[in-house]
């Protein structure tokens, strides 16, 4: 394994183009180093992008969006005032990822590129309608996160491509969001089920769901189109296909989806009302 530390995005892309699937991008390393230890990946080249100096700044706040660069860590993101103001649920989710020490390394974009079905930040990013910018030999393209996640550990980012930014559109005025999850213990843990709800001003709902399918899922509806909130929740969670694994049984996951979805919706509604008040 060779280590490279390109200084520019072009140099990084050049390395990826040269080595293809033999190259692995290193941002925070919290997923990659575990994979290296277990030899589930054996790259010829590691491309450390933390010294690339022509990326956009790690986190850029504009009126319309928050643009998160590929090296911004969970810890940094959760500290930023504007992120905390606009995206409570994202902060809640980011603060469940590993420990303080892990969050000082783990990058939000890297975590998304790892495409774990249970990634705790994926549901909220999906529900917020995040998009990613993918740079490659043919230039840049923008992909909605829902189209980005293809399956377990598979994304729309090709081996010669690099996700250079993640865009979080500014929530419409009168929105509220919340994150909920179930774990096996109270301290640092992987989510058995994780849920994010984003409730818009017109009672439009986006529900992101983690660890209940081969990839993180999102479903959308309008509360008014259903007889009750419970019916809306049923509609939203219908797409989930949870499985049995060492962390939980599928029936428990399915039941928790409903409980957490309801709780997340209630909290999001409360936050929306509080903001309005």
């Amino acid at each position: 394994m060779r280590y490279t530390s390109p200084r520019s995005a072009d140099e990084a892309l050049g390395l990826l183009a040269e080595h293809g699937a033999g190259a692995k991008v290193l941002a925070g390393g919290t997923d990659l180093l575990v994979a290296l230890r277990h030899r589930t990946v054996e790259p010829a080249v590691v491309v450390d992008i933390k010294r690339v100096d022509d990326f956009d700044e790690p986190v850029r706040v504009t009126d319309d969006a928050i643009v998160v660069g590929p090296t911004a860590t969970m810890g940094r993101l959760a500290e930023l005032e504007e992120v905390r103001r606009r995206h409570v649920a994202l902060v809640e989710a980011a603060l469940t990822v590993g420990s303080v020490a892990i969050r000082n390394r783990a990058s939000l974009v890297g975590n998304s590129c790892n495409a774990s079905p249970g990634a705790d930040t994926a549901p909220v990013l999906l529900a917020l309608g995040a998009t990613v910018t993918i740079a490659g030999p043919a230039g840049e393209r923008t992909v909605g996160l829902d189209d980005f996640f293809l399956g377990p550990r598979r994304t729309a980012c090709g081996p010669d491509e690099l996700v250079t930014a993640l865009h979080l559109p500014r929530p419409r005025p009168g929105s509220g969001s919340a994150f909920q999850r179930i774990t096996r213990r109270r301290g640092v843990d992987l989510g058995t089920v994780s849920i994010a709800a984003v409730l818009g001003p017109d009672d439009d709902v986006a529900l992101g769901m983690g660890a209940v399918g081969p990839r993180p899922l999102v479903a959308r509806t309008r509360l008014g189109d259903h007889e009750s909130t419970a019916a809306a929740v049923e509609h939203l969670v219908a797409a989930a296909t949870p499985i049995d694994d060492v962390r939980a049984g599928s029936d428990y996951r399915r039941a928790m989806l409903r409980v957490l979805a309801r709780r997340a919706l209630d909290t999001a509604a409360r936050r929306r009302d509080e903001e309005a008040a």
Partner: peptide
């Protein structure tokens, strides 16, 4: 756990070459 540039990190998940 060690402190890297002022922040605690788990040094098992950092490549030594990254500490350059």
């Amino acid at each position: 756990t060690v402190i890297l540039d002022g922040h605690p990190v788990t040094s098992c998940l950092v490549l030594a070459v990254e500490a350059e």
